[in-house]
């Protein structure tokens, strides 16, 4: 009985072509000039922001000042090495991302298209995890630096004499703890924003992809 119903629907469906309102040549022509707002476009935009934003931090004077802490801590050499490693990895990620992004084609079948988008997203995900780890690592380095640096203690004492009478040791520990807490919160915050953003963007895709995959089991 159902077959009949679906056949009936099919017949009706095919008869409807003549009732569909038609767009003019101009309407369609104008559309070819519009900008896409597909999820692939959004992944590209978000990724470019993710690759550039952390580096814009370096342009903020306050951040530059805080970077000079490495000088006082005698970490300058290590800092350069870490930066070199970091940029090498970032360039690798950008290359990977670009390669995978370019592979996404609307002409693939639905499943492959979804797979390629998920793969591209994975590159960004790995990059974000790497960046966040680097932030945590930098924070850790700062804390260790403060801990072992004698000069730093002296600077605090000099500064301290004029301001208050807290023992420098305590200030040192307080500073280490607050840098640690701030660094961890910053990392968690950035991570949360990222995962929420992508979670929302790819919710529909994930759902449909799982449905297609389940079909093959």
């Amino acid at each position: 009985m159902m077959m009949d119903e679906l056949e009936l629907l099919k017949k009706d469906w095919q008869k409807r072509d003549k009732d569909i309102p038609q767009l003019s040549y101009e309407d369609i022509h104008n559309m070819t000039w519009k900008k896409s707002s597909s999820i692939v476009k959004w992944i590209l935009i978000i990724s470019i922001l993710e690759f550039t934003l952390p580096h814009l931090l370096l342009l903020i004077p306050a951040f530059q000042d805080s970077m000079s802490i490495y000088d006082t801590l005698g970490f300058k050499k290590y800092f350069y090495i870490i930066s070199a490693v970091q940029y090498t990895v970032i360039i690798y990620f950008i290359y990977q991302f670009y390669k995978r992004y370019k592979e996404i084609s609307v002409l693939e079948n639905a499943k492959v298209l979804m797979q390629k988008i998920i793969k591209t997203r994975k590159t960004v995900k790995n990059y974000v995890i790497f960046s966040l780890s680097m932030i945590l690592f930098t924070v850790l380095l700062m804390i260790i630096g403060i801990y072992i640096s004698e000069d730093f203690l002296q600077t605090i004492s000099e500064f301290n004499n004029t301001k208050s009478d807290l023992p420098p040791e305590k200030i040192k520990i307080a500073l280490m703890v607050s840098i640690g807490i701030f660094g961890t919160l910053l990392t968690l915050f950035m991570g949360a924003i990222y995962f929420l953003l992508y979670g929302r963007l790819l919710k529909k895709l994930k759902k449909n992809y799982n449905k297609l995959k389940r079909l093959e089991v």
């Binding site: 597909s38 959004w42 079948n109 298209l113 979804m114 449909n208």
Partner: peptide
């Protein structure tokens, strides 16, 4: 193919 891919996957 293009129309369905857009509707199912790309369209936000």
């Amino acid at each position: 193919r293009v129309a369905l891919n857009t509707a199912i996957t790309l369209y936000r």
